[in-house]
Amino acid sequence: MVFWYNIESGEVEADEVKSKGENLMGPYDTEAEARDALATAAEKTEKWDEEDKAWEEKGWGSAADDGSC
């Protein structure tokens, strides 16, 4: 069974009864993982922001900076 986190309602939903639409995060293997979806996303975003900052501090910039996109 898989689970989804509904960002609009703040509820965890099982796959069989999940809402339709863009307000779902997942799928997650466990109900606990789905319940922690926002915290997990925040942690990943913080990590990626730190990696981006380190990348830019090394002078490598982003692909968008060099006009290649």
Rank of each mutant, 00 (worst) to 15 (best):
Y5L: 02
K47A: 15
P27A: 00
V12P: 11
E16C: 00
A32N: 12
S62I: 07
A41N: 06
I7K: 05
T30L: 08
E57V: 04
R35P: 15
L24P: 04
C69N: 10
Y5E: 04
R35I: 07
T40M: 08
T30M: 11
W55R: 13
I7D: 02
D49R: 14
S62W: 03
K18A: 14
E33P: 01
K20Y: 01
K20W: 06
A42N: 14
G67F: 00
W48M: 13
I7L: 00
T30W: 08
A64V: 08
D65S: 15
S62Y: 01
T40G: 12
D15T: 03
C69T: 13
A54D: 12
A34H: 00
E11P: 03
G61N: 10
A64C: 01
E11L: 05
K20S: 12
W60R: 03
P27H: 01
A32E: 15
C69D: 13
W4I: 10
R35N: 15
K47Y: 15
W55F: 05
D36P: 12
E33C: 02
K58I: 00
A37I: 11
D52W: 08
E46I: 02
W48G: 03
A64S: 11
L38F: 09
E57K: 06
E46S: 08
E33V: 04
K20I: 03
D49S: 12
E56C: 07
K20M: 01
E43N: 13
A42E: 15
S19H: 02
I7H: 04
D65F: 02
K18I: 00
L38S: 10
D15A: 10
D66I: 01
E31N: 03
G10E: 11
K47W: 15
D49K: 15
E46K: 13
G10Q: 04
G67D: 05
L38Y: 05
N6L: 00
